[in-house]
Computed example of a mutant assay.
Amino acid sequence: MKRGLSASICLLLIMISLPSTAVITPNPPELSAKGYVLMDFNSGAVIAQQNARTELAPASLTKLMTAFVVGQEIRSGRLAWDDVVSVSKNAWSANFQGSSLMFIKPKDEITVRNLMTGLIVQSGNDAAVALAEHIAGSESAFVSLMNGWAQSLSLEDTRFINAHGLDGDGIKTSPLDMARLLTALIKELPEVYQLYGLKTFQWNDITQYNRNKLLWDRSIDVDGGKTGYTEAAGYSLVSSATEGSMRLISVVMGASSEQSRASASKALLNYGFRFFDTQQVMDEGQIEARVRVWKGQPENVGALVDQDAYLTLPRTVSSGLSKKVIVDKWITAPLAKGDLLGRVEWRNGGNIVATYPVVSAEDVTLSGWVGQVWDGIKLRFSKMLAWLSSQMGGGND
């Protein structure tokens, strides 16, 4: 048994392909886009998708990662919202004619908060470069940070080449990666995410409006997201909306127009809220089983889930859910708190619909040498009996 494996590595697996006899849920809406994903925020379940892992040009969706890196610098204490950034010639808006701009110029002294607002609301390419240079010394060094964070978030289809997202060789992402990125941003950086709900921002006597049209739609509670457009990418939109305690993330990439990306995103979100539901089924720290630890002190340890656990299922699935705890029978000391012990499987009609890791609730040290020898003998005998049972056709579940 490998030790030190965190629950975040053993991520939950959600499957909603339940038997057709048990679930009557319509197909997702047909959308005109290069790819899309609809994901539940809490469970991570992918409710609907098309070309979810197709590599596409991100355009200004790149700025989600730019903002994420800045937010992590603030979170770590290495940067503050009120820090003042001196704008260089590289970040001058004149360098990005015909693209989204905050309209800053060399030698401007601007706070991180204002640049972040210009980055998020106005999608300023100039603001992206100014922030990148302030944090890392150069845009290229900042891009290394972006790609490092992409790797840590397991964004397997993503590679950044700049801080703003304008087209270039090698830049890529996927709808699934963008859904995961926005999820991480909302969870880890709520103060940054609040800026995505702002509808307007004025800088240099120019008032600009957030390009996410769903922020103005009163029929759906979208509280943030990011738009993107280049000729290579088409029109893209990442959005998040809530209904009651449920939050969904939608990603539409490569639509044909601003209106198309907004209407497609709304259709996806409405589909998810209407036909699916997410419920919390386990609490962080909840003990699911007691596990025998050979050669250890104590001899038994609690196996717990170290995160709140959620299930996202079609609303027509109202009964038949069952839970099964599966742990390794041959766990030996020493153990560290948080070591992986097994998993909890949630099933519906015999089908696994979700899996969560269970980990050790405490440290387990080696027992004395007499206990280790005696447990070693019992362990060998137990394994022999289990092997004989399996050879005779007995179950070993």
Rank of each mutant, 00 (worst) to 15 (best):
K2C: 00
S6A: 11
S8L: 11
L13W: 14
I14G: 14
I14Q: 14
M15W: 07
M15R: 14
V23N: 05
V23D: 04
P29V: 03
E30P: 00
K34C: 03
Y36A: 06
M39G: 04
N42T: 10
S43V: 08
G44E: 13
A48Q: 09
Q50L: 04
A57F: 11
A59V: 05
L64T: 10
L64I: 13
V69P: 11
V69W: 03
I74Q: 03
S76F: 00
G77P: 02
D83L: 07
V85E: 11
S86R: 13
A94L: 11
F96L: 04
Q97L: 00
R113I: 09
M116Y: 04
M116R: 04
T117I: 10
L119W: 04
I120F: 03
V121Y: 05
G124K: 01
A128R: 03
L131C: 03
L131N: 02
E133W: 10
I135W: 01
V143R: 11
S144G: 11
L145G: 01
M146A: 04
G148T: 06
A150L: 04
Q151H: 11
Q151L: 08
S152I: 05
L153E: 08
L155R: 10
F160I: 03
A163S: 15
D167V: 05
L176C: 00
L181C: 13
A184E: 13
K187V: 06
V192G: 00
Y193V: 00
G197D: 03
Q202P: 00
N204D: 15
N210Q: 02
L214V: 01
R218Y: 07
I220H: 02
I220E: 01
D221M: 07
G224Y: 05
T227E: 04
G228K: 09
A233Q: 08
A233I: 09
S240L: 09
E243M: 09
S250C: 11
S250G: 15
V252Y: 10
V252I: 12
V252Q: 09
V252H: 11
A255N: 03
A267L: 05
F275E: 13
F275K: 05
D277C: 12
T278F: 10
Q279W: 12
Q280C: 13
G285S: 12
R290Q: 15
Q297S: 14
D308P: 08
T312M: 10
T316W: 03
V317N: 01
I326E: 14
V327I: 12
A336Q: 14
G338C: 04
L340F: 15
R343A: 07
G350F: 07
N351V: 13
N351P: 00
A354W: 10
A354P: 09
T355Q: 12
P357C: 08
V358C: 08
S360Y: 09
E362Q: 15
V364L: 13
L366Q: 10
S367H: 02
V370E: 15
V373S: 09
G376K: 06
K378L: 12
Q391W: 13
Q391L: 15
M392R: 11
G394Q: 12
N396A: 11
N396E: 11
D397I: 14
